[in-house]
Design a protein around this nucleic acid. Structure first.
Length: 769
DNA sequence: ATACATACC
DNA sequence: GACTGGTATGTAT
């Protein structure tokens, strides 16, 4: 602090170099900060940072005032509350899991160095002049790091080599490491292309009972300690896939006869030239490299070492790992011995306490530079300080944040990896050279909406809330959002909403221009698009056929009549695109699209088995029970839904149309508008019978029938029915068997640092395959 | 429901 | 000269 302010009012603390990252210890921070400062000062960006800094200082000031106004009685109360919470937390501390966080070392940079050895001894970074994704360890010595603009990095390190990112390549490598992860935890939780959490608890049980053979792997012989050296003539295929089966096969009997203690020695003594092994790789035809055999123990350390070695053999890249009883600690541990190392915190309260004592709060995932500074003003810099200042924290922060802090100080975190929650939002944004011409702004907006609609369609999603994000040339960020009447992924409807949000902003700076450097569009409140909308339409036809009085129903009935926005609220002269026929047809296939550099990808298991309809039912049901106990219930709900769903389909197929109904989100005027059809994605459809322009609808839950039941009323009715009847019955048994303690905080759900994955929608039995 | 801020990679 | 892009979530209103 003092050093920074000593340089004048100028240097911004939150902008200063962050030496938190591995490989950045003991830098000449002062010099680096000076260079960053010189490169930044006077820029719009810098001015905005100053503004933010002032706001933060203001917040700190207010916090100080609040703190100093606390009476000793209040402080005592805070202390009491804190201690009570801590007791409850301790009571439900779970040390029975073995969580591992695996993180590739300088991932993008490492891939580039692997593929271009000329980079190996040079400072390099992946990214461009305006932003870096990552840097190698040589560059880090100069203070060059991820999230730093390239032009500043070049000032810090004039010899820095910039490499354009190649995401296709990183994704391919990511695929390879995930294949390995899956062998240790099929339910692993990827956080980005280069890192994942694994729950090794089950693997370790299996491992302890496994034969030595299962724990022997091939390692290429290294000429030095650091990295595998490959020459051009040698095979670089997956060595353990190509050769391990034959080696193990040949040696099986002997290996089984040697005692575990002597086995490694025996493996070292083997001379493979005597073996009848292929000399060349059957995949690439190149010469197979010389190798040794390594036996790994049944311990966690060896399991993780084995995994890391296999990653290296497979990708020629190194990974670091952290082993601990929860995700929060595992994450911190994986950073401890980076690069190419691992660290374990054993499931022991004393050891955890000892570890937390001197751990800087900034190391905890979820505590960033702002929270660090905020807490710094309360003399908190280590995790143990959170405990010391617990009485203050109780008063200074929301109860959620307070709980989060208390959990940190106790070294507690999530002990399960709840996987693959459906995404909550999808967005696209672009930075550009200043645009202020309204026509061009609308044009940009249209582009973004087109992009977003494409992504939504590729992911088979529809959303309800459209948000516009803008960043002015002075880096001020604004978001404006509007929730539509119904779910959509139609480009025109999205644009119609976005353009009107944009219009308000353009109009609001009256007499002058809205000058932007960035625009983005986001869709949230997502539901899966019914994957079989076409067949649903045909089901309408089918049910019509069943009813002699049925009137014609065709797709034109579903056309949207007007745009979703109220025209009176957002009258606009811009008329580039009008909302039209949203797409009714969609395919059954689920396509994956590669998104951000860091985005998690969903597990393949899930996507392949879900139909849109089932998804929507799951979504609907889960919403009501979102906060309840998860895994067990979900499995149960899941299987019930499956049955119900099948029954539904059977009902449709046969003539039993006694219960005919449709649950739709509120809708208007026309019996079944197009928008309503889109809402089928979150509908439970059994069947529908139309007669003489009127519709006879019955609730699929209770069977109650009504003539021309207004959709919003039916909706409400079904909400009630489902939540009251279905869910309650389904969950009744579980509630009994799954008693939940009075301690709310046991569940990590709402805490910032916890990697959140909601429920597992994979069928129960797939776990055991 | 909306806006903004913080955090993560 | 130049300071990203995508997602989630907490806080405040």
């Amino acid at each position: 602090m003092s050093k920074l302010t000593a340089q004048g009012s100028s240097l911004i603390s939150t902008m200063a170099i962050n030496d938190n990252k591995a490989g950045m210890e003991g830098l000449n921070k002062e010099k680096i900060n000076q260079i960053i400062f010189e490169a930044s000062k006077g820029s719009k960006f810098f001015e905005n940072e100053q503004k933010k800094e002032e706001q933060l200082n203001q917040k700190i000031l207010e916090q100080q005032i609040l703190i100093s106004s606390l009476s000793s009685a209040m402080l005592f109360h805070g202390l009491k509350e804190a201690d009570e919470l801590i007791e409850k937390l301790k009571a439900c501390q779970d040390l029975s899991h073995t969580i591992v966080h695996v993180d590739m070392d300088a991932f993008y940079a490492a891939v580039e160095m692997r593929d271009d050895p000329r980079l190996k001894d040079k400072p390099m970074a992946v990214g461009g002049m305006s932003m870096l994704s990552t840097s190698n360890y040589i560059a880090r010595k100069y203070g060059v790091r991820a999230a730093m603009p390239g032009f500043i990095a070049l000032k810090l390190c004039p010899n820095l080599v910039l490499v354009e990112p190649n995401f296709t390549k990183y994704t391919a490598v990511s695929q390879e490491i995930r294949e390995i992860f899956a062998q240790y935890d099929p339910n692993f939780s990827p956080m980005s292309l280069d890192e994942a959490y694994l729950d090794l608890t089950e693997h370790l049980i299996y491992r302890r009972g496994s034969s030595n053979l299962c724990r022997i792997f091939l390692l290429r012989l290294k000429t030095d300690n650091s990295s595998i050296v490959v020459n051009d003539l040698e095979c670089t295929c997956n060595l353990n896939a190509v050769l391990r089966p034959s080696v193990i096969n040949l040696e099986e009997l002997k290996i089984n006869s040697v005692s575990s203690e002597n086995l490694q020695e025996y493996l070292n003594s083997l001379d493979f030239s005597n073996f009848n092994l292929p000399k060349d790789c059957q995949v690439c035809n190149k010469k197979l490299p010389p190798f040794s055999l390594k036996l790994y123990d049944t311990t966690v350390e060896d399991a993780v070492l084995e995994m890391r070695n296999r990653i290296e053999q497979r990708t020629f890249l190194t990974a670091s790992a952290g082993i601990a009883p929860n995700t929060m600690l595992a994450k911190v541990c994986s950073d401890r011995n980076k690069p190419n190392g691992q660290f374990q915190i054993h499931p022991d309260v004393q050891e955890i306490e000892e570890f937390m004592k001197n751990l800087p709060i900034r190391k905890i995932s979820g505590i960033g530079k702002v929270t660090e500074k905020l807490l710094g003003s309360l003399n908190i810099s280590l995790c143990s300080d959170l405990y010391k200042q617990r009485a203050l924290l109780y008063h200074a922060f929301s109860s959620l944040t307070f709980q989060y802090f208390m959990k940190i100080t106790l070294g507690m975190g999530s002990t399960s990896l709840e996987k693959d929650e459906e995404r909550k939002s999808l967005s696209t944004e672009r930075t550009f050279a200043e645009i202020s011409d309204p026509a061009q702004l609308y044009e940009k907006c249209a582009e973004l909406c087109q992009h977003l609609a494409k992504d939504l369609n590729e992911e088979q999603l529809m959303g309800k809330t459209v948000s516009l994000k803008i960043k002015t040339i002075s880096f001020e960020i604004k978001t404006r959002s509007h929730t539509l009447q119904c779910y959509t992924n139609d480009e025109k409807i999205i644009f119609n909403a976005a353009k009107q949000l944009l219009k308000v902003e353009i109009d609001s700076v009256k007499q002058s221009l809205l000058r932007l450097r960035l625009m983005g569009v986001r869709m949230s409140k997502l539901v899966p698009q019914a994957s079989n909308q076409v067949s649903i339409v045909s089901l309408f036809h089918q049910s019509n056929r069943l009813t002699s009085t049925a009137s014609r129903t065709n797709t034109h009935n579903f056309n949207i009549q007007k745009t979703d926005f109220d025209e009176k609220d957002f009258s606009t002269s811009i008329n580039i695109l009008e909302a039209n026929d949203p797409v009714l047809e969609s395919t059954m296939t689920t396509r994956h699209s590669q998104k951000s550099l860091f985005q998690k990808t969903q597990s393949p298991q899930k996507k392949s088995i879900e139909s849109g309809m089932k998804n929507s039912i799951m979504k609907f049901v889960s919403k009501s029970e979102r906060c309840s106990d998860k895994i067990a219930n979900n499995c149960y709900v899941e299987s019930n839904i499956k049955v119900e769903n099948n029954n539904n389909l059977r009902n449709l197929d046969c003539e039993n149309s006694s219960s005919t109904s449709l649950k739709l989100q509120s809708n208007s005027k026309s019996n079944f508008s197009n928008a309503a059809m889109q809402n089928v994605s979150q509908a439970t459809l059994i069947s529908s019978v139309e007669s003489k322009q009127k519709t006879f609808i019955s609730c699929p839950v209770c069977g109650q029938q009504k003539f021309d039941w207004p959709l919003d009323q039916l909706n409400q009715h079904m909400d009630l029915c489902l939540s009251r009847k279905t869910i309650k019955t389904i969950l009744q048994d579980d509630k009994n068997s799954n008693k939940r303690g009075a301690v709310q905080v046991e569940n990590d759900d709402s805490l910032p640092s916890v990697p959140k994955r909601k429920k597992t929608q994979i069928a129960v039995d797939s776990y055991f395959k």
